[in-house]
């Protein structure tokens, strides 16, 4: 099953390596990983997407809690949470396809962030499904390359991840 794990950590060197180490030790793959400072500069939030055996994920989450620099861990899968990802896609264009690309961008509410004589760069935010649909539509139009941020997630208002 796919798991979205949100981890609040001290903003210090080595913390990310410790967390990633638990996955390599188990031979698990991290699908996506996002780290950035939070509202407090001394803390970072790390959103991690992985999939694997239920009980192993459970173990990994418990081991996160044991780490000295980890403040709070939450498994957001199955929870009511906001999920977003950002993508930047470069599409090669010519006179024929240019208007079509713009129309697709319009439908998905994507922004054009770079324009050149041979290509457009589009920027889009959304959940995983939306981004995947976007890529599929763009592929036949001349998709050249993409860059994705990976998922970030925040619980909806009821419960908020707060400090211990």
């Amino acid at each position: 099953m796919r798991h979205i794990i949100s981890i609040l950590v001290d903003n210090e060197p080595g913390v990310l390596a410790r967390i990633a180490g638990l996955f390599t030790a188990r031979g698990f793959n991290i699908e996506s990983l996002c780290v950035a400072e939070t509202e407090k500069p001394s803390l970072s939030r790390l959103t991690l997407v992985t999939s694997g055996d239920e009980w192993i994920i459970d173990q990994i989450v418990k081991r996160f809690e044991n780490m000295i620099n980890v403040i709070k861990v939450e498994d957001l899968s199955g929870e009511d949470s906001l999920e977003r990802e950002l993508i930047i896609a470069r599409i090669s264009t010519n006179q024929k396809t240019r208007s079509e690309v713009l129309r697709v961008a319009d439908i998905f509410r994507a922004n054009v962030v770079d324009v050149g004589p041979k290509s457009y760069a589009l920027e889009l935010t959304g959940n995983k499904e939306k981004l995947e649909a976007f890529i599929e539509i763009l592929r036949p139009l001349g998709l050249k390359e993409i860059s994705r941020t990976g998922l970030i997630s925040l619980k909806r208002e009821k419960k908020k991840i707060t400090e211990r």
Binding site: E54, W55, D58, Q59, K62, E65, N66
Partner: peptide, 9 residues
């Protein structure tokens, strides 16, 4: 004292 010892199996 270690939650990781709580075995789900």
């Amino acid at each position: 004292i270690d939650k990781a010892n709580f075995n789900a199996r």
